[in-house]
Simulated assay, not measured.
Amino acid sequence: MNAVKMNEERLMQVILAPVISEKSTRVADQNEQVVFQVAPDATKPEIKAAVELLFKVEVKDVKVANVKGKVKRFGRFFGRRDNWKKAYVCLKPGQELNFVAGE
């Protein structure tokens, strides 16, 4: 049981933010999937457990993609954005996710 408590702290840090874009909205409508930005060292089981813990929904499947940071220019200097990890979380049929806390 103690391992679960320590694990809960880790799970709270796995999901960083929802990804809101045209593609993620289309994916959510068609496939009952939700897209999250997750910690770079997060694993699929951790992501599944974190979503189930935070949003009280059942997760069917998790797919993960590593996103390369873009090269950007600042005047005559070149810089690079950080690489990040994106998780496509597929919910079981009938499950729904609300990001608004009051509902």
Rank of each mutant, 00 (worst) to 15 (best):
Q13Y: 07
V67T: 14
E46M: 01
V89N: 11
V67M: 11
A42C: 02
L97T: 14
E22Y: 10
R10N: 09
E103W: 01
P40I: 14
M6W: 11
F74Q: 12
K72Y: 04
N7C: 10
V64W: 05
A42Y: 04
K44Q: 09
R76H: 09
Q37D: 03
R81H: 12
E46R: 06
N2E: 13
I47N: 04
D41W: 07
E96H: 06
P18K: 08
K48A: 01
F55S: 01
E22Q: 14
R73P: 01
L11K: 02
P45G: 06
D41S: 07
M12K: 15
L11R: 02
K56W: 00
F99I: 11
F77K: 15
M12I: 14
D61I: 11
F78G: 13
V100Y: 07
K86H: 05
V62A: 02
K60Q: 13
D41Y: 07
F77T: 15
L16W: 07
K56T: 09
E96K: 04
A65G: 10
A3T: 15
E22V: 13
T43W: 00
V35K: 03
E58F: 00
S24I: 09
N31C: 02
V71A: 03
S21L: 04
Q95K: 07
N83E: 08
V34I: 06
K72T: 14
V67C: 09
V34H: 01
